[in-house]
């Protein structure tokens, strides 16, 4: 659980971020990116406070946050599993990996398991087509996968 001290230090980081960007034109996207890095996702309160500091209507901030696939408006799991949707991965069995992961985790793409352990996502081509099919587990790109191998990989996640 996050305690009060940690919340305060997160808020201090946000404050620093907003102070740095508040007069820069076109700063909304980098601010949202870095705010999401701090808090893990963009909560309604966070979107409101960013909007008021950057003097951008909340509706516009919300519009930008929902337009780009990188932004998340709900909490995500401890482990992020991204299944590559690129052509090469598709031709070499990427959709089978997705089917297996969906049934193993009991989550659809974009959903998080109830214990907040895994979030299953799709990602547009990772550009590692030579290794297709590819899945990204957290920051690690894992290639040349089969349904069994991908299950082995994720069962090792704590």
């Amino acid at each position: 659980m996050i305690n009060n001290m940690e919340v305060l230090s997160l808020d201090a980081k946000l404050e620093e971020l907003l102070a740095k960007y508040q007069d820069t034109p076109g700063a909304l996207i980098p601010v949202l990116q870095q705010a999401q890095e701090i808090y893990g996702y963009l909560s309604p309160e966070l979107i409101r406070s960013i909007s008021s500091r950057l003097r951008i209507p909340t509706s516009r901030t919300y519009g930008v946050a929902t337009f780009y696939s990188q932004f998340h408006l709900k909490p995500r799991g401890r482990h992020i599993i991204k299944v590559c949707q690129g052509t090469a991965c598709h031709v070499r069995g990427g959709s089978k990996l997705m089917e297996i992961l969906k049934s193993y985790l009991g989550a659809q793409p974009g959903e998080t398991t109830e214990d907040l352990k895994f979030t299953l996502e799709t990602v547009a081509c990772l550009g590692a087509c030579g290794l297709a099919p590819v899945v990204m587990i957290n920051d690690q790109t894992v290639g040349q996968l089969t349904p069994e191998k991908v299950l082995q990989k994720i069962t090792t996640c704590e």
Binding site: P25, G26, A27, I29, V64, Q70
Partner: peptide, 25 residues
């Protein structure tokens, strides 16, 4: 250096420019 935020359409020139300006691409 500007980092994209995950929108394929931003590869289109005018959409990319909108994205740099901090708008929807």
């Amino acid at each position: 250096l500007k980092e994209g935020a995950g929108a394929f359409v931003c590869g289109e020139g005018t959409a990319l420019q909108a994205s740099i300006e901090g708008l929807r691409g």
